[in-house]
Amino acid sequence: MNAPILSATGLVRRFGERVAVDGFQLEVKRGEAVGLLGPNGAGKTTTISMLAGLMKPDAGVVRIDGVSFEGEGDPRKQWVGLVPQELALYGEISAMENLRFFGALQGLTGSKLATRCGEVLEIVGLSSRAGDRVKTFSGGMKRRLNLAAALVHDPELLLLDEPTVGVDPQSRNAIFDNIESLRRAGKTLIYTTHYMEEVERLCDRVVIMDHGRVIADDSLAGLRQRASSAGRLTLELSAAAATDARWLDAVRSLDGILGAELTGSTLVLEAREVHSGAARALDCLAAHGVRVTGLASHQARLEDVFLQLTGRSLRDG
């Protein structure tokens, strides 16, 4: 039961000179929900492609239930359901026809195929629209059908590559509900996103990637513990200081200060460790003759952990 359903060892993938994924390691146990976090260009989609058997790694190996993929027609692919970032659906045919096609590609036939198509439409709440052309669906409905198409063959492991991109809040919640029900059903999930709140809601373990590398792999609780010391300081400054901000570069270059933004007379600092960071910043400001009229610190969030680890925000390009 505790044997990993998926293991990736030393995955490397290059595109020309650029190394997109560099020594990626991961083990996922059955029933686990792992969030794969990283900013755009971190290598998440390339990693998912290798995990799904779409792309051959330049080095390293992916094993599903202990066996590595062998070729594009490997039946082991049936263990995996991929929800691609793109809406990979045929708009000119109905939702049911789409599912029947993708199910047939997975080897389902006859009554089993029909039953599974009905079930997954039920799961994503589209049973009443089964016969409608997909091009008539809203963006949120298409996203749900995109999810259904990955579920039709009832895979053990679900790879969700940013499945809520461009979705309105209501449809997003509906997709979350679907995913939570899959979790309850014991499915194993790997969920890539750059929305921290999605990971907090859906996953019990987080892998953070940046520049193709895993820079953190921990439970939510463990990451929160790391985050407790990190935080944000908000300092109110005298009006004179705000008009002559030559000191700002000095503050930004302080050890332990990850970022500093001046808006009007308000200075917001991101500090790796809030107490030492505050002390250094106040000393620096005093040395430059900047008068501080107010000071507030904020509770650290997972977003701050990411910033602490990578030096940039999750939504940076």
Binding site: S49, A52, G53, L54, G71, E72, G73, D74, P75, R76, K77, Q78, V80, G81, L82, P84, Q85, E86, L87, A88, F102, L105, Q106, G107, A149, A150
Partner: peptide, 17 residues
């Protein structure tokens, strides 16, 4: 371009088929 091939290739489908 729209990513359909990612879904097709995630199935045990060979290029020849």
């Amino acid at each position: 371009e729209a990513g359909m091939f990612r879904r097709l290739r995630s199935a045990p489908l060979t290029r020849a088929t």
